[in-house]
Amino acid sequence: MAISAQDVNKLRQMTGAGMMDCKKALQEANGDFDEAITILRKQGQKVSEKRADREANEGVVFAYTAPDATEGVVIALKCETDFVAKNEEFVALGNNILNTAVAQKPANIEALLDLAIDGLAIREHLIAMVGKIGEKIEVGAYEYAKADTVVTYIHYGAKLGVLLSLNGAKGEAVVEAGKDVCLQIAAMNPIAIDKDGVDADTIAREIEIGKDQARQEGKPEAIIEKIAMGKLEKFYKERTLLHQEFVKDSSMTIAQMLKKVDANLSITNFKRVSVA
């Protein structure tokens, strides 16, 4: 059947797809707009599948903190190129996904993808954008936190974000301290809050590395274990948040900085989210 330019333009406005794709979809659907939209989504799915093995190492990190600072959300919407990451529609979709996550608090990414925006599941919005843009697009991370105080931080360029939970105290001074801790996490990339949070495999690996280094330095076998444990303590100071030197004041650790703010203040959790 004949498809008018007006119908093609209407479908293009509805879907954002290219003019020729819209025309072909309408022809295949015999002018039925709903069927044409379904065809376009299927085309998007095909594009998504073709690009499933591509690396999505660009994108934008979005964050929300509740007005009372007791809840926070961070998401990462990923794509293949920085050009797409700066696309207005891509950013708008990221903000819509963030707002939906804030409103409905899904348990995980899969649950988030099932939520609807304007009657269409988020996973379908992603497929449609893949079909339109021609790049792999995915929600790379979703983190939600609820605590006495929750602080979020987006690093310059919006490629990296932090979600921090603190308990034991509230107030402006706690929020400001939380911002400093978020900056610390972004800069120093700790692997755990404290020693207790470091997994056994990592500890075993670090001890073995310490032993090998000591042997290569020619140290006596009788003190190899002691040297390795000393290196492990150094590892804790460098890689666990509370033991790290505070980036804004190296005369104290993060634990000491927090104690100065409030003796009862503690970090209960943190998430460092990156699109890379």
Rank of each mutant, 00 (worst) to 15 (best):
E80P: 08
S48E: 06
R51Y: 00
D34W: 04
A116H: 13
G16L: 02
E143H: 13
S251P: 02
I122Q: 04
G171T: 12
E217D: 15
H243L: 13
G131D: 04
A52L: 04
K170V: 15
I191N: 04
A192W: 11
E135R: 01
L93K: 04
L164Q: 05
A29C: 11
S266Y: 09
I97E: 00
I207T: 07
G18Y: 04
A2C: 00
I39M: 09
D7W: 04
L40H: 02
Y142S: 09
F83A: 11
L26M: 10
A25M: 08
E124C: 07
M14W: 05
G59Q: 11
G119F: 10
P106C: 06
A121M: 12
K146E: 14
T100V: 12
E28I: 10
K50W: 08
E135W: 01
C22A: 06
S4W: 05
T38W: 00
K105V: 07
F62C: 01
Y142P: 07
E58Y: 03
E238D: 14
Q45P: 00
L112M: 08
G218K: 02
P67E: 13
L40M: 07
G94L: 02
K42I: 10
L265R: 07
D34F: 02
A52T: 04
G131A: 06
K42P: 00
A177G: 10
D148F: 06
I207E: 11
E58C: 05
I207Q: 03
D199Y: 06
A52F: 00
R123K: 15
Q6K: 15
L241N: 10
L77V: 12
K260L: 12
A145Q: 13
R41M: 08
A85N: 04
N108Y: 08
R239Q: 15
D34G: 02
K237W: 00
N264L: 12
T65H: 00
L258T: 12
A186Q: 07
N167A: 13
G16T: 02
I109V: 15
L113S: 12
I203W: 10
I227C: 05
V8A: 05
S274W: 02
L183I: 15
D199V: 09
N30L: 02
T149D: 02
K23C: 07
D180G: 12
I117A: 05
E88V: 05
G119H: 10
A173D: 15
K248F: 08
L93V: 03
P67I: 04
L265P: 08
T152N: 06
V273P: 08
A186D: 09
A186G: 09
A103P: 02
N108W: 10
E124V: 14
S250H: 13
A85D: 06
E221N: 10
K132D: 00
A128Y: 00
L115S: 09
V74N: 03
A63C: 05
A101H: 02
F62W: 01
Y64N: 03
E176P: 00
H125D: 03
S165A: 15
F270A: 06
I254N: 14
G16E: 05
D68Q: 11
Y153L: 03
E138D: 13
V275E: 09
D32R: 11
A222L: 11
S4E: 05
D262H: 15
K132I: 05
N9H: 14
D148Y: 09
I133L: 11
R12P: 00
A204N: 13
V151R: 05
